[in-house]
């Protein structure tokens, strides 16, 4: 009886650990292929465009509305202890350290991890990956490495742009709805924002970008057969990337700011 219960608990735990191990091995394999030639520049530039440039609207809009909502929340909460004046500083720090990278990472996960998993999964079920191998082209080098590198470089840039747009959203709400003076708002923002507030967010962005592309590629490469298999791969890529982003965010925040 107890053995059966333990087995029921142990089986999924072992499955999760085995899955995690496979992802780690996949990540190490990706890094190994990144460091050895050939490197497919054309696929890299195409991925950079897809992941970076085409994610800009969704990341920008998310940051803009988040910055605005954050300003309203801080003003409303701060008014309980007469701290309405800290809106510019908290919006800036909140966007740069936390909301910019996390929401940017999650939006990119939704948009990019799903698209990478669906594309590579479809390539797998239509034998295009086998075709790559027969054409002496390693699928890891051709498909995974350019996407992972592009996402690792593009997401910090998206985070930086998102931070600026989010802070602008807070500023717009501040001066139009909360009665702040524009010059004072901007001065408070710049005076209190430190380099590491932004820098830590960019480092987080790079890690989140790596996670997003890695999970998209991993799910695609391990996609099951048919439309159902590709659908399941797409779903698992987004879920895994999102959960890993939130977990990594906690670890990185602890590393950067716990002291």
């Amino acid at each position: 009886m107890i053995g059966a219960v333990l087995a029921r608990i142990g089986r999924p735990v072992l499955a999760v650990l085995a899955g995690f191990g496979r992802v780690v091995l996949f990540a190490l394999d990706t890094l190994r292929h990144l460091l050895t030639p050939p490197f497919y520049w054309r696929e890299f530039w195409a991925s950079l465009l897809q992941i970076g440039w085409f994610s800009l609207p969704v990341v920008g809009l998310t940051a803009f509305f988040t910055g605005g909502a954050l300003a309203l929340q801080i003003y409303s909460g701060g008014s309980r202890f007469s701290a309405e004046a800290v809106v510019p500083q908290i919006v800036a720090i909140g966007m740069a350290r936390e909301l910019g990278p996390v929401l940017g990472g999650l939006m990119v996960a939704a948009r990019v991890a799903s698209s990478i998993a669906a594309e590579i999964g479809t390539m797998k079920v239509t034998e295009q990956i086998d075709a790559l191998v027969t054409l002496s082209t390693h699928p890891m080098k051709y498909l995974t490495v350019p996407r992972v590198l592009a996402a690792t470089l593009a997401v910090p840039v998206l985070v930086a742009v998102g931070d600026s747009i989010g802070i602008s959203g807070g500023w717009l709400v501040g001066i139009t709805k909360l009665g702040f003076n524009s010059a004072t708002y901007l001065k408070n923002t710049t005076d209190f924002l430190e380099f590491w507030d932004v820098g830590s967010g960019l480092v987080k962005g790079a890690v989140f970008g790596f996670i997003v592309a890695l999970m998209g590629c991993y799910a695609g490469m391990n996609s099951g057969r048919g439309a159902q298999g590709v659908g399941a791969a797409t779903k698992s890529a987004v879920v895994a990337a999102s959960v890993l982003i939130l977990a990594a965010n906690y670890v990185l925040t602890g590393l950067f700011f716990s002291s």
Binding site: T122, M123, T126, E127, Q128, D130, A131
Partner: peptide, 8 residues
């Protein structure tokens, strides 16, 4: 390949 397996 059976389905062509051309790169889309």
């Amino acid at each position: 390949f059976q389905g062509g397996a051309l790169f889309d």
